[in-house]
Amino acid sequence: MEEREFDRLVAICRLKLSAKEREDIRKDIDDIISYFDEVSKVDTGREKEAYHPVEMQEKLREDKVVPFGNVQGLLSNTKTYRFYVVGPKV
């Protein structure tokens, strides 16, 4: 993978890498992608994608609103203002 493409990918991922992390990831990314390329050698014939390992029909439940028992616990993981979770500007 070329430097420019790698940098573009890192930016899309919203990652900021230190020099050491960049070196660590950069040095073996081509080896990993070459390794991944080997799946294309498998003749999968007419197999369809297995989105789950155990394929079966399951009943979906009806949506229903139920009270959550520990709202204070939920909010304790956030900064709040008048019962709203505070976040960055969008």
């Binding site: 799946v39 294309s40 498998v42 999968t44 197999e47 369809k48 994608e49 297995a50 989105y51 390992p53």
Partner: peptide, 14 residues
């Protein structure tokens, strides 16, 4: 090439 193919390989090996 990668993701869809990998899921077909999962079906084949299963």
């Amino acid at each position: 090439k990668y993701y869809d193919k990998a899921m077909k390989v999962r079906a084949l090996l299963t």
